[in-house]
């Protein structure tokens, strides 16, 4: 009985925390000034937002096959989202999209 209550409370906590991170990612996607910085905002949604929501769903599902599927979904998201971000950033950089850098900073290293 109390075990179910603990699972319910944990599910609430994780899902609400995940929703907050998802919202922060969305705000960042609008607020940040250029493409390369927006990737970081999308990264918040892809990592903490998605993971916390999925972990919350796991607590709600309990020890069933559904939890295994949720874990698989978590694994796929964790494996594919950095690859997609990297492919985007690399394509943009090779296409010559100039990053907006901090005050007084220049691109370091030799890139043609």
């Amino acid at each position: 009985m109390s075990g179910a209550l603990v699972a319910e409370v944990l599910s609430w906590a994780f899902i609400v925390a995940g929703s907050v991170f998802v919202l922060i990612g969305g705000i960042g996607l609008i607020r940040l000034p250029d493409f390369y910085t927006r990737i970081h905002a999308a990264g918040i949604t892809d990592t903490m937002g998605a993971w916390l929501i999925l972990i919350g769903l796991m607590f709600s599902a309990g020890w069933t096959l559904i939890t295994v599927k949720l874990f698989m979904l978590l694994f796929f998201l964790a494996a594919t989202s950095p690859l997609a971000s990297h492919a985007l950033a690399k394509a943009a950089f090779l296409r010559g999209l100039e990053p907006m850098l901090g005050r007084g900073l220049e691109i370091e290293g030799d890139h043609d």
Partner: peptide, 22 residues
């Protein structure tokens, strides 16, 4: 830029996955 759009669509897709699950 087109990259912003693709990034947004990719992020939209991730959220769609979460939305379907939830």
């Amino acid at each position: 830029t087109v990259f912003d759009r693709v990034l947004a669509v990719n992020s939209f897709g991730t959220k769609t996955v979460l939305l379907i699950a939830v």
